[in-house]
Design a protein around this nucleic acid. Structure first.
Lengths: 398, 398
DNA sequence: TTTAACTACGCAAACGTTTGTGTAATTTTT
DNA sequence: AAAAATTACACAAACGTTTGCGTAGTTAAA
């Protein structure tokens, strides 16, 4: 920062000049005449009038153009002045700032989004907002994105493949900078995401992720949690450990089954298909599933359940059947719902899958990809992938 | 639709021509020569080549300009053709459509948003996604907005006034077409919404609404539900009906208190401040509040509780104190959480406030306001306001 | 045959902003 | 005193699309 060249007093030529000047501009005019050093600058009185003349305007929003017109400078000068670009003189910069303030000017981001081909918005596609698991995930996204001043737009697939497709398309139309997805139960093909590549929209999957290698994703490793659970059962003396699994279409279902087998093996327990059931997650089906397990001689004494919601129905059913939970039959499931704290009858434990954490990490990944995109780097060469460990949370007996 | 003027065969000049033609375009060339009727049109072979030449392009997205260049027509023609504008000839329209498809052209909404000064996006500001009440509300918004192909961006105020302010500002920057708000607990001034008027961004409040007349809002009338509740208590013979209220700052708190008084009066019951407590909604405070009521000789036999979450703590506390719920003391609260279905110990009833419905109606209002805005109508003259009745939902004794 | 109407397009402006380049006016260097 | 450098700005293009207006060429009406 150098002193002005000509005329006047330039008393105030110090490093903090701009800040000082700006504060001066709103104090008595007597002080502002310090700036009469440049012949190109109109007397301050003229500035004052030009400001007040049109201050109260139509309902049109003030633009950079109007500021330019008012001050008889070009729009480029105004734009630069507003960004405190060094090539614009101090006085001009100040006058621009002042008029901008007077007019209540605020930059039109829409114009910039368009020009920059960016929207500072990311999309989140989740099956359902009603499920705490996903609303908590959304929360993780929002918290993270908010720090970067990014907006979050949401789409509920409601576990419908068609809706998922439409939402993806819609978000592409909206030119979001990136997308986070947790797949529907129905999704087993992934072509509807391919189009995003053309638009350079990065995509990160979380929790319910595609069975593919060439993707960015964050998911939760069920093995750690389920191993803890089975061990817990085994340590308590259980030999017949059943499983109530989810819908066959869901990747999580197959995964749970595989890990269940693996964990049984690790504990030297035999596989018995009589104590394995599955449910579509509807209430009726949940009841059916647990009934299949308990309505037999070789009833399991412990059951791994697909999730806490299914378990709620299981508990109600076994109670109705006259069995006592945690005595005749013990449960461990997935989700770690906060509500258990208030329940009299609850499982031994539930396995936490950290939806908030998964979503946060996925969002972090997404921002890294967006950043790479901005730099023109190729993001399709090394994939960002993370699998976090699930964790069993014990519930003390009441 | 009239027949083409000159030359050729024009066998296909029928009302459904366009649809027919379009399907023809993807069938053998032999048929397409039907369109050699206009001298201005290049032979179909030329069309075919010009399409394939640059089909595989750079990573730049195809624009209307490129289509225009390829076909040697103006961008305005292409734009109109893509919209099937009648002033563009059939052949040209078809050629444009074909090239657009070949190129994988998709309109850049960002450009249109900017030009139209619309974003087809609405913002939703809620205290917390973690609360089912609000995530269900968000669900209502999303479902409704989705039908209109509107996007929804979210902001969590986390019950912080400062955050609410920032989010409003951010959404304004983003030029959303409208905003839905459920206020924070702290919000008691509303200047931060004033700026939105300048930008012609309509705002509809729901559930937690400002104490003002000149606003659009949807809220829930607690009187109906609470009257049902008190009557239920009275019918069961209760004389001492206590109240556990929320934080003093919240509008809902004052409202509950007033209605509580009113309902007592309507049932000819006296007001007794000894059986009224309040909580900041923290667990410790919830426990304190219920203890205040039960640790006295004139303990109430029935209590209206601020909401189901507070009630959960109340139930745990009275049980720990050796009291039996629904015998020594009965409860009715607000929220109607689905989880009660699975609880052994639950209140007599809970009052449903229809968050989904409130949000849906609010969204409907918002769209009406946006529509009015589009027509240039003034929306600040008659305010859209609706108060829906709360409703008590009974829980049968288990 | 002249005139009016219509068809099928092109031209250019507009939306609000950023940014590369050009250039007088002034100042510094030689 | 001439040349070089710097300052402080203006000009114009670009982003992709829509749309009012103009017009050559053709057809229909008078």
């Amino acid at each position: 920062m150098k002193p002005p060249r000509k005329g006047g007093f330039f008393v105030l030529v110090i490093p903090e000049l701009r800040a000082v000047e700006r504060s001066l501009l709103i104090v008595p005019k007597a002080i502002v005449i310090f700036f009469y050093y440049n012949s190109a600058v109109k007397p301050i009185k003229a500035v004052a009038t030009e400001i007040t003349t049109q201050s109260m305007q139509s309902n049109k929003l003030p633009t950079i153009k109007e500021i330019a017109k008012k001050l008889n400078v070009s729009v480029s000068t105004v734009s630069r002045a507003l960004h405190d670009h060094p090539s614009i003189g101090l006085v001009t910069t100040m006058r621009v700032h002042k008029v901008a303030k007077e007019l209540g000017y605020e930059v039109n981001k829409s114009a910039i989004y368009f020009k920059e081909r960016k929207t500072y918005t990311i999309g989140v596609i989740i099956p359902s907002l009603a499920e705490p698991f996903f609303s908590s995930a959304l929360c993780g996204v929002e918290d993270f994105a908010g720090q970067f001043n990014y907006n979050v737009i949401i789409g509920q697939s409601l576990d419908s493949f068609e809706r998922e497709k439409r939402i993806v398309d819609n978000m592409k139309d909206h030119r979001v900078d990136g997308i986070l997805v947790s797949l529907t139960k129905e999704t087993s093909t992934y072509e509807h995401f391919d189009n995003l590549k053309k638009y350079n929209i990065p995509i990160v999957f979380f929790d319910r992720v595609p069975q593919k290698k060439d993707i960015h994703f964050v998911s939760c490793n069920l093995h750690s949690g389920m191993l803890q659970a089975i061990s817990r059962f085994v340590d308590a003396g259980h030999k017949k450990i059943g499983l109530i699994n989810g819908p066959a279409k869901m990747a999580a279902t197959l995964q749970r089954l595989e890990i269940y087998f693996k964990c049984l093996k690790e504990n030297n327990l035999p596989i018995n298909y009589d104590i394995i059931a599955s449910t579509t997650l509807s209430k009726e089906d949940n009841v059916k599933a647990i009934r299949k397990l308990i309505d037999q001689d070789k009833m399991p004494t412990a059951v791994m359940v697909f999730n806490d919601y299914v378990l709620l129905d299981c508990i109600a059913t076994v109670k109705a059947a006259g069995l006592e939970v945690n005595k005749d039959i013990s449960f461990i499931s997935f989700a770690n719902l906060p509500i258990w704290e208030y329940m009299d009858t609850r499982p031994l434990a539930s396995i936490e899958q950290f939806s908030y954490k998964q979503a946060s990490i996925a969002t972090d990944f997404l921002f890294k990809l967006i950043e790479a995109n901005n730099k023109g780097e190729n993001t399709e060469t090394n994939y960002m992938q993370q699998i976090i460990d699930s964790e069993m949370v014990n519930y003390p007996l009441k």
